[in-house]
């Protein structure tokens, strides 16, 4: 079955310009939906990267009672040193803790006045060898019930909170993107249907003189795919030149430290863009294929 390339290009070109408003509507819907879709993916990868950075320094802090005895402290230290899962530990005594406290609350002198080194807990800052949150949690929990220990605080709990928050945002983005993609699919389907209606006389003649079914169908399917790929191209532009710089800007924002470590790598961007183009081609192919099989009686 020889379908001439120049024929397909000529027919598709004519069709795209014949329904310019409808084509534009489908393309714009594709742009918006794919930009949302891609942004949600970028955000999610950004969070993962942020988490990775936190992971490098994941640690837990074993806070002891202020009145911990020397034996208790020595026992905890021995346990930490002998534990193969602990990479390193740092002891922070009450005076150092007080300095940290003063630094942290330097805006609230009355709070500092209320506190003295004796009531603050000394602590071990622990860097584990294995950074899997579950392992770290199990390791830290071993120390929670030791005599003289007040509590064990995990850094990744904070990370988890951030991740959960952004996952919630991401899920909503994705839901909106999926809805819009469905709208795009239906618009493509209708655009192709209108294109076929505009060319019904040609189609009738083609059937009459014995053009094969695929010869009649292919230009319409190509038209659908071109529309979504046009949309994808714009969406890729948006993500590369608008969304990614925006995320980078957020991560450098000192006022919102929650975004620190929030980076999108070139690899993330390329992966997302490829995925967006793939989804676009799929939507275009499905929309036009459905239109062709339902409304082109060949």
């Amino acid at each position: 079955m020889a379908i001439k390339l120049d024929y397909v290009i000529r027919e598709t070109g004519t069709n795209l310009f014949r329904n310019v408003t409808l084509t534009l509507a489908s393309v714009l819907t594709v742009v918006v939906s794919l930009t949302l879709f891609g942004s949600a993916l970028l955000l999610q990868q950004g969070v993962e990267n942020a988490n990775d950075r936190f992971k490098g320094g994941i640690e837990f802090i074993v806070y002891m009672q202020p009145a911990v005895s020397a034996e208790q402290k020595a026992s905890i230290e021995r346990d930490l040193d002998s534990n193969p899962d602990v990479r390193s530990k740092t002891y922070v005594d009450q005076d150092e803790t007080y300095e940290e406290f003063k630094e942290l609350f330097r805006e609230s002198p009355q709070l500092i006045d209320m506190v003295s080194p004796e009531i603050l807990p000394p602590s071990f800052r622990v860097a584990p060898r294995i950074q899997d949150p579950d392992v770290v949690k199990a390791l830290g929990d071993q120390f929670a019930s030791k005599p003289g220990v007040r509590e064990v605080v995990f850094a990744f709990e904070v990370v988890q909170r951030i991740q959960e928050t952004f996952n919630k945002i991401g899920v909503r983005f994705l839901a909106a993107a999926v809805l819009l993609l469905v709208a795009a699919l239906m618009l493509i389907l209708n655009t192709i249907r209108v294109a076929m209606f505009a060319r019904r006389r040609e189609i009738e003649v083609m059937k009459l003189v014995g053009a094969t079914n695929w010869f009649i169908r292919v230009p319409f399917i190509v038209e659908g795919i071109i529309q979504t790929l046009l949309g994808a191209a714009v969406a890729v532009g948006f993500m590369t030149f608008l969304i990614r710089p925006f995320i980078d800007e957020l991560s450098e924002d000192k006022i919102l430290p929650i975004f620190q470590g929030f980076t999108v790598t070139d690899g993330n961007l390329v992966f997302t863009n490829i995925l967006v183009v793939g989804v676009a081609a799929l939507i275009g192919a499905i929309g036009s294929a459905v239109a062709v099989s339902r409304f082109l009686d060949v």
């Binding site: 001439k4 024929y7 006389r201 003189v209 053009a211 094969t212 010869f215």
Partner: peptide
């Protein structure tokens, strides 16, 4: 096909069967 010339109308029948 009213948007095609006489020649194009006849040629169309051959073109679309390759």
């Amino acid at each position: 096909l009213i948007n095609k010339t006489v020649y194009e109308n006849v040629a169309f029948a051959l073109e679309v069967i390759g």
